[in-house]
Design a protein around this nucleic acid. Structure first.
Lengths: 144, 144
DNA sequence: CTTTTGGGTAACATATTTGGTTACATTACA
DNA sequence: TGTAATGTAACCAAATATGTTACCCAAAAG
């Protein structure tokens, strides 16, 4: 195993909401689809609400719904909402500054990691929740 | 903090070996530059030796040296040597297959994660240990 | 051939992260 | 007012990461 399941579960959650097409859905119902505890779902949704991807409706007859059209939500939006900025351990990485390598490597690593992250995020930005929704419905339009 | 320090430390280690320019270096010396325990370094180097990036010399007067020219070693080589294949938690992700979303989301996620990973790896492949070495020496040739 | 030096690796301790769970306050609708 | 939902804190257990000690083995030096 590598990494946590937050991003995977979050995409699942938003895909579920897209599938429900605007209707409100409770955390319990989503949790049943994800096979986990409603609190786990609400924790993730809390972050997604803060990032304005989802709207929470409190009180009886409450639930969650998408804050915007699936075509306007990319996987990158979701990723950024639920994942901390990755640093590849750079904050725990404290080399010996007396060493010519140790004193200069950190900046080099930061640059390299930033480029790698950018490359990944560009790919995430290329897929929208609408794309996911299309695939979910098994609809295959003629082209692509 | 996010992620482990294996990749960052490994790049540091190989940069150190490149800096030593072919000479053998002990795990103790490298550990001093990284500010950690020699065993930690040897554990990482063990993976790098298995991936043929480094040669280990046992016995007295032993040590480690690069297995090939820095220009032939990319950050992607290092990344693959020391990091497990990331799966974004997909092996722990077991949605409810009775649900139309849960039953189909996994394949969609796999595709998305693969694209993201590919985007990141392309960037890592674009930087070689020779590039890192250049930056370390502070050498700035006229063009980029 | 014995000593010395250094890699290889198992074993263990500790800290952190993650995900699940319970509990409970708050909100809003009927 | 009662009910059903979110919001969130608190806690636990499992997994992970890193440091550390210990000990084996290999190879050069003498």
């Amino acid at each position: 195993m590598t990494g946590n399941t937050r991003f995977a579960v979050s995409v699942h959650v938003l895909a579920y909401l897209a599938f429900k097409d605007g209707g409100q859905t409770t955390s319990a119902e989503i949790a049943s689809s994800v096979n986990t505890n409603p609190v786990v779902i609400r924790r993730l949704l809390s972050a997604l609400v803060k990032s304005r991807l989802v709207i929470a409706h409190k009180g009886a007859a409450g639930g969650f719904s998408l804050a915007s059209a699936p075509a306007k939500i990319t996987l990158l939006d979701i990723y950024r909402a639920v994942e901390p900025q990755p640093d590849h351990g750079l904050d725990r990485f404290v080399p010996n500054t007396k060493c010519p390598v140790g004193s200069r490597i950190e900046t080099i690593l930061r640059t390299a990691f930033f480029k790698a992250q950018t490359g990944m995020e560009a790919q995430l930005a290329a897929t929208s929740l609408a794309d996911v929704h299309q695939q979910l419905k098994g609809v295959c339009t003629a082209k692509k």
